[in-house]
Nucleic acid binder design. Structure first.
Lengths: 204, 204
DNA sequence: ACTTACGCTGAACAACTGTCCAGAATTTTA
DNA sequence: TAAAATTCTGGACAGTTGTTCAGCGTAAGT
């Protein structure tokens, strides 16, 4: 006997609706986490943000860590989708890298809180083994992104990791300056990356 | 009328003894912080570590943040003293840099928890403005250290910051790998820095 | 219409947090 | 030795934390 689709108003399976609900909660949770950071965010803060009772969170997620894990993977998917189009876009090789850098520079000003959350949780993973795997996965994806970019530009693959780390360090530093009130942080980031690029090009 | 020295068994002024006591407490606090991280460390944990009542902490420090601030400055002084001798040591120019890198590589294995604490608090500073100043000061000192090293080696001063950030990113990454159980992290760090150095050298 | 399952509520719980403070213990001063 | 100042204690306080659960209403299945 074949299982017919359930006769819901929306055409979603039960599992899908569950998943969609979890996504909603995660989105609200991420919103609070961006503001307060991991350690300072309580389940009640999150519950309030999505207009739901505390118990509801435990209905969908085993515990706080599971919720965090879910949020992280969702955040990762979102971020990679956001910058992924740079790889696919049709443009001269030099422009792709310039576009990435420009995008990152703008992110310092516009999505500062989101990225500060990433650094927060990445650091937390040094203390809570629970987050080790997710963080490692996300970071591996970032490196993979740079590797593909290097592939497009004909740059040596084995330097992708190095370049990622360089970019990460500068982004982190100027993000921190920006959050501390330095209005020139965005420009500082671009200038410093430019210096770095000239270093790479000279030995291209 | 001249104030005679107090007739304590030790020859310390009152202020000095107070300062020494604070140092003792801070040392014990740092020990716990290294294990648990900032957010997970309570005043009771710290009090237990130095065999003292909770109230005592508030007698010496206004609040938890003040204690943290004190700990940070003490940590900074210790760390810079530890690597400072590289600048003063008499050795061929190439060896000084190699010595620093070797020292850092060993730190991944030996002082992992101490450095993980530094990354923890540096990230916290993105959320608590209270720590902004201390963190910025320490980081400025680190850059200054690299700048002096570059001075000794005849390398361009304006690249000191860039080099610091590169070193920092690689150290952070491999520290995280090490903490996640990667036994090859120390070697990985050295290899990656070597790659970085060759990049720098080619444009001398 | 009746039953089952699902999604959610919000009060209650025990554990823990930073902070305060009256008073004890100790040390310094007179 | 007596008085004063310093250092420390440990219980109390009010607030927050993650987690649990009996019970509610609603939707699905029969």
């Amino acid at each position: 006997m074949t299982h017919a689709l359930p006769k819901h108003s929306d055409g979603l399976q039960k599992v899908d609706r569950r998943r969609a609900r979890k996504d909603d909660i995660a989105d609200a949770a991420i919103e609070v986490l961006k503001q307060l950071g991991y350690a300072q965010t309580s389940l009640r803060d999150i519950a309030a943000q999505c207009g739901v009772a505390v118990g509801t969170l435990h209905y969908h997620f085993a515990d706080k860590a599971a919720l965090m894990d879910f949020c992280l993977r969702r955040y990762k998917a979102g971020f990679l989708a956001e910058i992924g189009d740079i790889l696919d876009a049709e443009m001269p090789d030099g422009a792709a890298l310039a576009a990435l850098i420009e995008r990152l520079a703008q992110a310092i000003g516009r999505d500062a809180h989101a990225h500060r959350l990433w650094y927060d949780i990445r650091t937390q993973a040094m203390f809570e083994r629970r987050f080790e795997a997710v963080v490692a996965e996300i970071e591996a994806d970032m490196v993979e992104f740079v590797r593909r970019l290097f592939g497009r530009l004909g740059l040596p693959h084995e330097q992708a990791m190095t370049f990622y780390l360089q970019l990460d360090a500068m982004f982190r530093y100027h993000l921190q300056r920006h959050l501390a009130g330095d209005a020139a942080a965005t420009e500082g980031f671009k200038a410093q990356v430019a210096q770095l690029m000239s270093l790479h090009r000279r030995q291209g």
